[in-house]
């Protein structure tokens, strides 16, 4: 049984069905790439996995570590070990990155403001953050800035990966982390993800382009078109996509 089991997942947005029965298995230690053209439902899949309120599950199920997570709130899913790097990280005014990261980490530790022994110490926080600030080339002054405020597109995406490094999830969904990134940022992000890669981390990497796959080698590649997974295989699937594009599935799915 895979750590993350998606079975026949059907999801609608504002009454329109976007995912039409998606099934995927992702286990820790594996990196899966889900590729697809715009509008194929890739982002719907990622947002649904974390429980975004704008997406309505019409059918199917999702199990993570044997637990049915569709009934869980987004914060409970996160604490269970699921992580989503947003395609469009948003600005939250007035809350510093530092406060955000610490509060999130404390929530993962079960610290609710009472039992101080559960709260993350400043020293521990530093040892978690510092190496990734370096890998991701994020200036430490970013930590005292408000969440994503005044960050460039690349900086926002790098900050998402920094959050991932701090929270140490067991399963990370990366929603087009590579889109809109300059080549340097792609390198830094890939370096950080490769550093985290290991038997304790599963990755579901959602992307439109094959470019990032040169830096993060996937174990499995799935192609999603019009709300369904139309092909699954190894890295060679991406190579074929690189040569032939998505057109070949146009007929099949219509």
């Amino acid at each position: 049984m895979a750590d993350l089991e998606i079975r026949d997942l059907r999801v609608s947005v504002e009454g329109r069905e976007i995912l039409k029965g998606v099934s995927l298995d992702v286990s820790k230690g594996e990196v899966h790439a889900v590729m697809g053209p715009n509008g194929s439902g890739k982002s719907t899949l990622s947002q649904t996995l974390l429980g975004h309120p704008g997406y309505k599950v019409e059918g199917g199920r999702v199990r993570f570590k044997g637990q049915d997570i569709l009934e869980l709130t987004p914060d409970a899913r996160s604490r269970l070990g699921l992580f989503l790097a947003l395609q469009y990280p948003i600005v939250v005014p007035g809350i510093t990155m530092n406060n955000f990261l610490r509060t999130a980490l404390n929530a993962h530790r079960g610290y609710d403001g009472k039992d101080k022994s559960k709260s993350v110490s400043p020293k521990e926080f530093r040892t978690l953050v510092e190496p990734y600030l370096e890998t991701l080339r994020i200036d430490r002054t970013f930590l005292s800035r408000y969440i994503n405020e005044g960050f460039s597109g690349g900086e926002k995406k790098r900050a998402e990966i920094l959050q991932m490094a701090v929270l140490q999830p067991e399963m990370a969904v990366l929603d087009e982390t590579d889109s809109g990134l300059d080549i340097d940022s792609i390198k830094y992000v890939s370096e950080a993800i490769n550093k985290m890669r290991g038997p304790e981390l599963g990755v579901l990497m959602i992307t439109h382009y094959t470019r990032i796959l040169q830096f993060i080698k996937p174990d499995y590649v799935h192609v999603m078109v019009a709300g369904q997974v139309v092909e699954s295989g190894g890295a060679e699937v991406a190579d074929r996509l690189e040569r032939e594009g998505y057109a070949q599935w146009g007929e099949e799915v219509a």
Binding site: D75, R79, I95
Partner: peptide, 20 residues
């Protein structure tokens, strides 16, 4: 949603947002 997706419970997230 952003704060919740990082594991922060709703009540805490709301308070942080208002404080922010």
């Amino acid at each position: 949603f952003y704060l919740a997706s990082r594991g922060i419970p709703k009540a805490v997230a709301q308070r942080m947002i208002v404080q922010g």
